[in-house]
Design a protein around this nucleic acid. Structure first.
Length: 488
RNA sequence: GCUCCCAUCGUCUAGUAGGCUUAGGACACAGGAUUUUCAAUCCUGCAACACGAGUUCAAAUCUCGUUGGGAGCACCA
C-alpha cells in the first residue's frame, strides 16, 4: 500500500514581523517534514485586510530564507483563494450547517457587556437562524455567515503533544465563518486550506487549541477527515507573558544584524521545547532533521534565554575554520552599507590572522568588527583605568625606551617581542603589568584585547612605533596643559 | 466569569511502561588554577521534583484536590 506523504504547513498572518515564537513553529514543521521526506508548505493568512501588509509578508519570507527554512510549495496567499472559500461557505449554507446573521457589531458588544456585568460566560445566542423570509427582506445591512454549532455533545481530538483534549459543544457560540465583506474568517479559511492542500499534520502554537474544536466541527460538517494535530507550547518572554505582537514583534532579522549565525538560532530554537534523551546540546542541521520527533516536544511553555543563544553562537563560530568564518563575516557585513564601507579597506590576510588569533573568543560576527577596528582604525580611547596607566610616571619611560629599542629590533615574532618586553621590565625593575599595560594601550588603544605580543606581531614594526610615538605625543601634550580630553 | 493547557535547579530540560535518583545534563552564576588585559581552558561549588491528600511494600513518575502560571472566549489570526 502506498504510504501517505507527510505534508505540513506554516501559516503566519502578515500583521507583524515574524517573531521568535513563529520561527520556532516554522522550524518544528520544517524539521518534521524533512525528517520524513515530506512537504513543507508556506501559506500567508492575509484575510484581515485592515492589518495585513506586504511589508510584513516580506519580512516573514526574508526571515525564513535567512534561516534556510525552505518551503516546497507556496507561498500561497489566502486573499487569492477567496472564490474557494465562498464555494464551501455556500455548501455549508445549503446543507444547513450555516446561516446568515444580520446582527451588528453593536449587538454583539452589548451582549458581551451584559455577560461581563453579570459575570457569566460569554456565548452569543444569535437568533438570526430563525428569521423569516419577510424579516430578512427588511434587512439592509450585509450579513455575516455563522456556523451552526451542535447544541450538545463533545468534540474530542487527540493531540500529538498534549494528549486527548475534550471540549463541550454547548459552550461554543455559532461562530462567524464569513464576514460581511465576504472574506472568510480564520477558522473557515484554515480548514478549507488545510484540507485542499492535503495537510496531514497541523503543527502550530497552543494558542490555537481552543480553535481546534471549531475547526473539527467544520471538517465534520463537510464530511472531511481531520488531520493530526500537534500543539506546541508558547515561548514566553522574561515576564512569563506570551510574546505579543505589540511588544515583541521586533523582527527576528535583528539577530542577523547583531551577528548571530542562522544555525545558532535554529539550534537554540530547536532546544526550546524539544530535547533528546541524552541531553545533546549542539546539533548540526542534519542531526536535527534526523533526530527530531514530535513526541519529544515538551508541553510546557518555555522562556527565551538569551545567554544560551549567545553561548551556542560562540560554539558554532568555534566549530568553523578561519576561512569559513571570514566568508561568513564578509557576507554578513555586505548586508549592511555602513559595515561594508567600514571593512572595504581591511586587509584580508591580516583580518584572517586576527580571526585566527581570537578564534575561540568570538561570540558574534560583530566581535570581528570590534577587533578589526583595533587593528585597522586605530583610536585611543580614554577611560578612568586607561588614564591612570597613561599618566603613570613609568609609562613614558616604557614607551620611550620601547620606541628606541624596537627601531633597531629585527625579529618581530611574538616570542621575540615578549622577550624584549620582559627584558625591559627586568632592567628597569618594573613588574610586568607596569610594562605590558602601557604598551597594550599604546598599540591597541584599549585595555582589553587579544594576546599582546601576537597583536604586535600582526601589526608589525612600522605600525607599532607609529602608535607608540603617537601615544607619547598625546601624553606630552596633555601634560603640557592642553585641555585634557580625558576629562570629558 | 467560563473553557482549555501547563507545573523538576534562575533558564532550557533528562527522568517514556512507579523502585536503577544521595534527581542527570546544558546555559547562567560563584570560587579556585593559569595570566599582560578581556577571554579561552581546567577544576570545584551553588541550585529543583509548587502544596496537600490518596493508591502502593515503594511516587518526581499514577489519581484527586489546592495553589500558581499561560492561552482562548473578536466581522484577529
Amino acid at each position: 500500500m502506498e504510504q501517505k506523504i507527510i505534508r505540513v504547513r506554516f501559516a503566519p498572518s502578515p500583521t507583524g514581523n515574524l517573531h521568535i515564537g513563529g520561527v520556532r513553529t516554522a522550524l518544528f514543521n520544517w524539521l518534521f517534514a524533512k525528517k520524513q521526506n515530506g512537504d513543507f508548505i508556506l501559506r500567508i493568512e492575509d484575510t484581515d485586510r485592515c492589518r495585513s501588509t506586504q511589508v510584513y509578508a516580506d519580512n516573514i519570507l526574508d526571515t525564513l530564507k535567512w534561516l534556510k527554512l525552505t518551503w516546497n510549495h507556496g507561498p500561497f496567499y489566502q486573499i487569492q483563494r477567496t472564490k474557494l472559500y465562498s464555494q464551501y461557505v455556500n455548501e455549508l449554507l445549503k446543507r444547513n450547517h450555516a446561516y446568515k446573521c444580520y446582527c451588528t457589531v453593536d449587538d454583539i458588544a452589548k451582549a458581551k457587556y451584559t455577560s461581563k456585568q453579570n459575570k457569566i460566560p460569554f456565548k452569543y445566542n444569535c437568533k438570526c437562524k430563525y428569521l423569516t423570509l419577510a424579516q430578512i427582506n427588511k434587512k439592509t445591512n450585509n450579513p455575516v455567515i455563522r456556523f451552526i454549532v451542535p447544541k450538545t455533545g463533545t468534540t474530542i481530538f487527540n493531540d500529538l503533544i498534549k494528549g486527548t483534549i475534550t471540549f463541550d459543544n454547548s459552550l461554543l457560540s455559532d461562530f462567524i465563518i464569513m464576514r460581511s465583506d465576504n472574506l472568510p474568517t480564520y477558522n473557515l479559511a484554515c480548514v478549507i486550506d488545510d484540507y485542499t492542500m492535503n495537510i496531514t499534520h497541523v503543527i502550530r502554537g497552543d494558542d490555537h487549541i481552543s480553535n481546534t474544536p471549531r475547526q473539527i466541527l467544520i471538517y465534520n460538517a463537510l464530511r472531511w477527515s481531520i488531520p493530526h494535530f500537534a500543539h506546541i507550547s508558547m515561548i514566553l518572554n522574561i515576564d512569563r507573558q506570551r510574546l505579543s505582537k505589540r511588544y515583541d514583534s521586533i523582527s527576528v532579522l535583528k539577530y542577523r544584524k547583531e551577528g548571530y549565525l542562522q544555525e545558532a538560532l535554529v539550534n537554540y530554537l530547536a532546544l526550546l521545547g524539544w530535547s533528546t534523551i541524552d541531553s545533546q546540546q549542539i546539533f548540526t542541521v542534519q542531526e536535527l532533521q534526523q533526530k527530531f520527533t514530535i513526541e519529544k516536544c515538551s508541553s510546557n511553555p518555555a522562556i527565551f534565554d538569551h545567554n544560551k543563544l549567545l553561548w551556542l553562537n560562540k560554539e558554532k563560530i568555534r566549530s568553523k575554520s578561519v576561512d569559513e568564518i571570514y566568508d561568513l563575516f564578509v557576507d554578513w557585513a555586505n548586508n549592511d552599507m555602513k559595515l561594508n564601507n567600514l571593512i572595504a579597506n581591511w586587509n584580508i590576510k591580516t583580518l584572517k590572522k586576527i580571526i585566527k588569533l581570537e578564534h575561540n573568543k568570538l561570540t558574534t560576527l560583530n566581535d570581528i568588527i570590534i577587533l578589526g577596528n583595533m587593528f585597522f582604525n586605530y583610536n585611543l580611547v580614554y577611560n578612568k583605568k586607561i588614564n591612570e596607566i597613561l599618566f603613570d610616571t613609568n609609562t613614558k619611560i616604557v614607551l620611550n625606551e620601547s620606541v628606541k629599542r624596537l627601531s633597531s629590533q629585527k625579529d618581530f615574532s611574538a616570542t621575540a617581542l615578549e622577550l624584549y618586553a620582559r627584558d625591559l621590565a627586568r632592567e628597569y625593575q618594573l613588574t610586568t603589568p607596569k610594562v605590558f599595560h602601557p604598551i597594550r594601550i599604546a598599540i591597541s588603544g584599549n585595555m582589553r584585547g587579544p594576546s599582546l605580543f601576537s597583536m604586535m606581531e600582526i601589526l608589525g614594526q612600522y605600525e607599532i612605533i607609529k602608535r607608540m610615538s603617537l601615544t607619547l605625543d598625546k601624553i606630552n601634550k596633555i601634560q603640557k596643559g592642553e585641555k585634557a580630553k580625558c576629562q570629558e
